[in-house]
Amino acid sequence: MLTTCPACADPIGGGDDYCENCGLRLTPVPSGDAGVGRDRVEAALGPLAGVSDIGLRHHRNEDAMALLTPGARSPALVGVVCDGVSSAPRSDDAALVAAETGAAETARALREGAPANEAAATGMTRAAGAVAALADAAGSPACTYVAACMPEGGGPVTVAWIGDSRAYWLPGGGAPGPARLLTRDDSWSAAMVEGGVLSEEEAENSLYAHAITAWLGADSGEVEGHVATVALEGPGAVVLCTDGLWNYAPAAEDLAALLPGAERDPAAAARRAVEAALEAGGRDNVTVVVMSV
């Protein structure tokens, strides 16, 4: 039985479902119940905030997010966003388990002294294992994964990802450099563009534009995720999101125009991004996490 939270190490009661300090889920997700109560989820934790919404055309929310801020012993801001693969069974379970496991294990590794890039990789690996463990006779649940962590008080931001959920950097007023995409999609269209086979417009208009080539799940094969540590000169915001948002604003400059001053009010920025996706059609679940730098 757990006596301390695996993410922030605060004491917990034997019957607690969630840590009162950092909000981590402490009990397993019952099979088939992961989507209950998740049509709209909002979390605002000061410099870190997120919104996950079912969208306008889906019957359940197969996205998930997890947010951790420095508590009693948690050393960093950690945000994770996952998007369940809709063609796989229990994709909502996969996304939730991956997000919560990834955040908790990243924080644990940081607390034990691991460098940020190793901690982020550990979080992603443990998330992959947790999703693979959901496989049963009905098939293999699967999801994408993107995470960011930043030391308390600021510093380099480390991003880990697999699939096509994205991380962006949006500089604030006075910060140098343009907005930019910090991740590279594991997708058929990205591979075609990188290989010079198709133009970006041709790839985006293809029937296979959103086919991913890497994911978390028991059937993913020997696929390695990506980890990058980036020195970002603030003020500004790191935005993690599923394709439910970036389908409508794929270029970094488009997202920056949509979310000016995101670093000043991450919660308002996350809500504004989700509402913009809904106003544009809301074809997919949409999840956005904003981390102020």
Rank of each mutant, 00 (worst) to 15 (best):
G221P: 09
T101I: 09
L2I: 10
E152D: 14
V159R: 02
R283T: 08
I212N: 00
A64G: 13
A104Y: 04
A104P: 11
A209D: 06
A148T: 06
E112W: 00
D16R: 04
T125S: 09
V29K: 06
V290T: 08
W161S: 10
G102M: 06
C19I: 14
D284W: 01
A179F: 01
V238C: 04
G195H: 02
P151H: 01
S31I: 06
L110Y: 02
E20D: 15
L278M: 12
Y18D: 14
R271N: 03
A95R: 07
V131M: 01
P151R: 03
M1C: 05
V293L: 15
S199C: 05
R57D: 06
G13T: 07
D185T: 06
A72L: 15
T183V: 08
A116F: 02
G155I: 03
V239I: 15
A270E: 03
G71W: 02
I54H: 00
A94R: 01
L182V: 08
G163C: 10
S199F: 01
G261R: 04
S292Q: 11
R180H: 06
C19N: 12
E105Y: 05
R60M: 12
M150S: 09
P176S: 11
A88L: 02
A98P: 08
R73C: 08
M291G: 12
D83Y: 01
D164M: 07
R73M: 07
T144F: 01
W246A: 03
A251Y: 02
P178Q: 07
R57L: 13
L68H: 07
S74I: 01
L182C: 09
V51S: 10
N247T: 12
A49N: 07
D265M: 11
D284M: 03
S189C: 12
S74A: 15
P28C: 07
S199G: 15
M124I: 00
A160D: 06
V85S: 03
L96R: 08
P266V: 05
A190S: 11
C82M: 05
V51E: 13
G236R: 05
T27A: 13
G177F: 12
A179D: 06
G225S: 04
A133I: 12
S74E: 11
A120W: 00
S292K: 06
A64R: 10
S52R: 03
G129N: 03
D83P: 05
V29A: 09
L232V: 14
G14R: 05
A76N: 10
R264D: 15
L26P: 07
W169G: 14
V36K: 08
G155P: 04
A94C: 06
S187K: 08
V97I: 14
C82D: 02
P176L: 12
A72M: 14
V239Q: 13
G234P: 15
A130N: 02
A211S: 13
N21C: 14
D83I: 02
A256I: 13
V227Y: 01
V131S: 00
E105K: 09
T183H: 01
L245T: 11
V289I: 14
M124C: 04
R272K: 14
E222I: 08
G71F: 02
S187A: 14
T183Y: 00
T122Q: 11
A277S: 13
V41L: 12
D265A: 15
D63A: 10
C241N: 08
S292M: 11
A147C: 11
C22E: 09
R60Y: 02
G154R: 04
A268G: 08
R40V: 11
H226N: 11
